[in-house]
Design a binder for these strands. Sequence first.
DNA 1: AACAACAATGGGAACGTTCCCAATCTTTTT
DNA 2: AAAAAGATTGGGAACGTTCCCATTGTTGTT
Lengths: 343, 343
Amino acid sequence: MPVTLSRATLIEVAKLAGTSKTSVSRFFGPERERLTPKLQTRIAEAADTLGYQPNLMARGLKGGGSRLLGMLVADIRNPFSVAVVHGVEQAARAHGYSLIVCNTDNDPEQEQQHLRLLTAYQVEGLIINAAGQPEAQLQAIMRSGVPLVLLDRDIRQLDANVIGLDNALAIDMALEHLVQQGYRSILYVSESPAYASARQERLQRFTQQAATLGVKGQTLILSNLAAHAPTLKAFAKHSVSGPGAVLCANGNVTLAMTRRFQKLGIAIGPTGLMGIDELEWCELITPGITTLAQPTDDISHAAVSYLLNQLNGSAQASPLSYRHAPRLQVRGSTTFKHDPKHV
Amino acid sequence: MPVTLSRATLIEVAKLAGTSKTSVSRFFGPERERLTPKLQTRIAEAADTLGYQPNLMARGLKGGGSRLLGMLVADIRNPFSVAVVHGVEQAARAHGYSLIVCNTDNDPEQEQQHLRLLTAYQVEGLIINAAGQPEAQLQAIMRSGVPLVLLDRDIRQLDANVIGLDNALAIDMALEHLVQQGYRSILYVSESPAYASARQERLQRFTQQAATLGVKGQTLILSNLAAHAPTLKAFAKHSVSGPGAVLCANGNVTLAMTRRFQKLGIAIGPTGLMGIDELEWCELITPGITTLAQPTDDISHAAVSYLLNQLNGSAQASPLSYRHAPRLQVRGSTTFKHDPKHV
DNA sequence: AACAACAATGGGAACGTTCCCAATCTTTTT
DNA sequence: AAAAAGATTGGGAACGTTCCCATTGTTGTT
């Protein structure tokens, strides 16, 4: 048990163990097996007695690297972000790295601040879910040799890999499902796609594919919920005479639209409702909301693997999949008829 | 714009600016105003030219402190944790600190690892949502002078402050509400209270107060959902003849119980359902689930304020509230009769 | 026995920054 | 004018660790 009041240093451990600081450094580094068992024991006991814990600040300064990975998320309260953070942190830890997560609240100013901070802590790799267009900063970071991977959102004018959902495939699958279920009119609802390439991709693909499939496609950009009730009401009314469905671009939209459906008394199913991304409550809402679940574990793993490959100089170690397929989770919200007994 | 490929040092900036390293250090520290405007300009330009960013590892080593706070959460996927992390991170940043969040997945082994890591990074303060009973480690940390505050879960044998919900008050308010709504039998459902003092407090208070209020109190500890359907079914059947309600100890239980109610076809309202902690979907479930919302912002702020007070040596700067009152959010799930048109 | 290779250990310098105290210049006070 | 105070700047040492190369002892080969 540690008995001291202050933080012991490697020098103090060396003195107590009757050896040199180099040997103690070897004991706590990758060269422990170069020490005799006797010396190892003496050092272990001294360190335990003093409650010694290596100072990773000093280690990072001289030679060990920081063993830190940095991650920027645009919105920590988004369940997708939480799931990816969780996966990244686990993958990082499995390889001896710690993760610093910075939340930018979709604010480009905070984003710049956090990037400065992460570089100041000498993070060895970065996973960026961008809020703005910090390409100048990110280019400088990449030029300084820090590997970087973008998460979900591309940044124009930055030659970096993006790992995330296969947006085109997601839209294709959603449309295919809705058409198969008999819907002939689709309202695609999204948060502002400005600066968010994933949103832009989904929107563009929707517009293009709706035309190709011959369904009537409309889009609605969310900015103020109260302002959109008439659009949704009109859509639902129209859909009673000809089947229509609402496709939500992400979890936030799914939540907002579910609220709107309920507030406006729009029956879910007769007017279809489907969301991109799975949320824990989607099965609980009568009659269950159909979703496309994002493979967050795969995404997390791919991001960390990419960084580690870059750090290990093994760029071809394993082929990485950057665009991951969603999983369709069918529930009652994309069916006209459903058992009304579940109330 | 930065033009170099490697990380510039303070020495290089000094050379380019034609001044000393001490002046450059002053420029990037709290003594900038001690430099003449001319010198400040020269340094700013040199730093910009070189893309200089202070190395906080070196700064932490000599004298600046790490400016890091550490936070352990038992389950990052718990919405409560996310909300508190968000609040803590914002409060920390407002005071020039960065937050390292470590998720332990309720695993004591991971917890120990993370604690070692956080101390190795010389964090200046710690916020601990404990998964196990790491009192030995935490005592050593406190003895080394690092301020520490517990979040939500007390640790026996550790003389540290706990900041979180006022558990007794939460149970009192819940029971009062349910009794007022006419329920005379309450089933309290909780995850295992082992090692989780908040859960123990809530359970104990429930047992005690149910007796005091003369309502029939039962408790159910969740371990395997399939195994508990008979209990819930029996309870619901009984409650039809004499009003009963299910009180959920936290958000995870609320989710699980909502699922159970739906799977078993138990009508929400005739059998009441109420949860401790507010979740974004509680209003969406027909007929709306009554909750006690935790004041996560207050909790976050109190935790950071406590640490900062300790760090600034102003232990009496402002009286802190450690136990925060919940906010009752009444919805249809605690009413016998409700409009069945919302389907 | 002499030499080479290997094992084990250690001292000094370096890492990038801050801090301490010294030095010099300028302004104010006596 | 001389002395004191204030403003400005700077060099060296320290922070805790790693790395490099040197030293010593042991073992194996010729």
